[in-house]
Amino acid sequence: MEILNIEGISKTYGANIAVKNLSLKINAGEVYGILGPNGSGKTTTLGIILGVIRPDSGFYEWNQKINSLGALLETPNFYPYLSLQQNLEITALIKQVDFSEIDVVLEKLALLDRKHSKYYSLSLGMKQRLALANVLLGNPQVLVLDEPTNGLDPQGIADVRQIIIDEAKTGKTIILASHLLDEVEKTCTHVAVLKKGEVIKKGAINELLKVKRSLIVSSDENERLFELLVRSGLFEKVDKKEDLIYIDLGDNMNSKDVNEFAFKHNIVLTRFEMHEKSLETEFLKMVK
């Protein structure tokens, strides 16, 4: 079931293009990561689908069956003079949720003992956790999270990541914008990479990484091996740095083919390392 359909949205701020003709479809149960360097249009895109930013053109459409949505956009926004409980009472009234659920989400985010503290007295990490409690209030079917681990310590990051994974396991759809590639790689099923407001790559994260396996090899006849590999044209990319040869296998070749290639040319490989490329490597390549 399609949850969100974004069709050709664009947004400019003066001469700056924030989002350019962006289209995405997100299905139920997906954990959809939106990646991109600073200024790539992630937050603007989320702002548009959350109704706080008006697109110049294009449209977006949430599935009519979605009746609850929890979202965190950029920084947490609360009344500093109100306590955690009072701030969440406002959200509960907006979401039309019973006040008794406030304790449940505060407990989940380890903030229950601070429920009567004023918001201004919280640390940055606690503020971020309160924002997540706000998102989870009312047990929404869809979560939209913009940099949810901002300001959190390593334990906090791990806890939030676990919460996202747990929520995803319950079948929720999660849209997650982050520049923490490790976070996206560990939690997302799908990813869209933005660059200067445009989607430059999108799809299932496994698909995106699977085809990008690489090998690092070396031999006593490194120069000859390198020349043969390049001349063969069988491999997507062959590089040589110092005494190591880097081979991008591409879609049709695998590590066995490289071994056989060396054997066929009477070259004994002294080093043979298989590398599954990380999202980070891919991402940096894409946005370069």
């Binding site: 965190l72 609360f78 979401k95």
Partner: peptide, 18 residues
């Protein structure tokens, strides 16, 4: 003004008010 300064007006829209 508080709602604009604390950006809670934005949060209210995100949370579900139109």
């Amino acid at each position: 003004g508080n709602d604009f300064v604390f950006r809670t007006i934005r949060q209210h829209v995100i949370d579900g008010l139109n």
